[in-house]
Amino acid sequence: MTITQTADTRQAPTAGTRFRLLLRKYYFAFALALFLALLITNLLVQRDFGWVQQVAVFAPLALAAMASTPAILAGRGGIDLSISPLMTFCSMVFATWLIPLGLGGWPSVPLILLLGAAVGLVNGLLTVLLRIPAVVVTLAMYFVLAGLSLRISPSTVGIGDNWVGEIDTGIAGFPGALVLILVPVIAWAVLSRTLFGRQLFAVGGNDATALSSGVGVRSVRIAAFALGGAIAGLGSFALLSVVHVADPGQSTAYTLLAIASVALGGTTLLGGRGGLLGSLLGAGSIFLVQSLLTVLKVPAQWLGLFYGGVLLVAVVVGALISRSGRTTS
């Protein structure tokens, strides 16, 4: 059935189909155009843009969006709803346990990354080995993590005089948060060229075919969840650097926007196509619109409506692009 459809589209590639195929190849083109347009608008409206501060405020969303991407790329409804609570959980662990133990310095980076990866690993293991839908596993994990964060401390925990607090002010004019954002981007650029990267796309595209070709589908999928968890661990530093406290009440802050960013970034939610760069640009677009709304003094009560609308438009556009030439069911 798929074969005949492909044949059909080849016979008569309409302008719409050609455009769709182009967008599919350069999946982040839409997000890039949107991002640049919004950036120019922002710079025109806001004369004093304050780069260092803006990047620091943007970093948590950027990392949450990138952390959500690998699980979605792995396909079959893979999605990680526990990214936002995981970031909060990691920041709680950092503020309540690592700092008093004297591990608040640089050793905390690998520890927190490992913690994030471990939670992601559990998500992956439950999803793959017990064959429970990822949505349910990560939703359950979402509540477990949010509960644990509140268990660690019911109120905010300060981080005192710590290097994390200096990320947002920047090091000699260079935004420190940019480093946090660039680490996963560079890691991804390397990873997507390795065997694991190719296998991840193969599994996301068609897991049955990947399995038949000898790809270890299960381990690839588990690794995708663990990778997302590690990026979320990194995100906890971005979170801490902005507010300077670990806040257990903020567990759900980025859930909706992170997924909207991924969808807006051109990663298809069916898996197998997309990447971290698109999610970063998608998150950037959302952040710039937020910034614009604040400058234009749009009342806060419109924000929820706006977030929902963006997410809806993003998934619909994504679905229209990735639809394979068929017209009706």
Partner: peptide
């Protein structure tokens, strides 16, 4: 995902 968006829209 659609219901997540719709939830925000309904309250909004």
């Amino acid at each position: 995902i659609v219901t997540l968006a719709m939830s925000a829209i309904a309250v909004g």
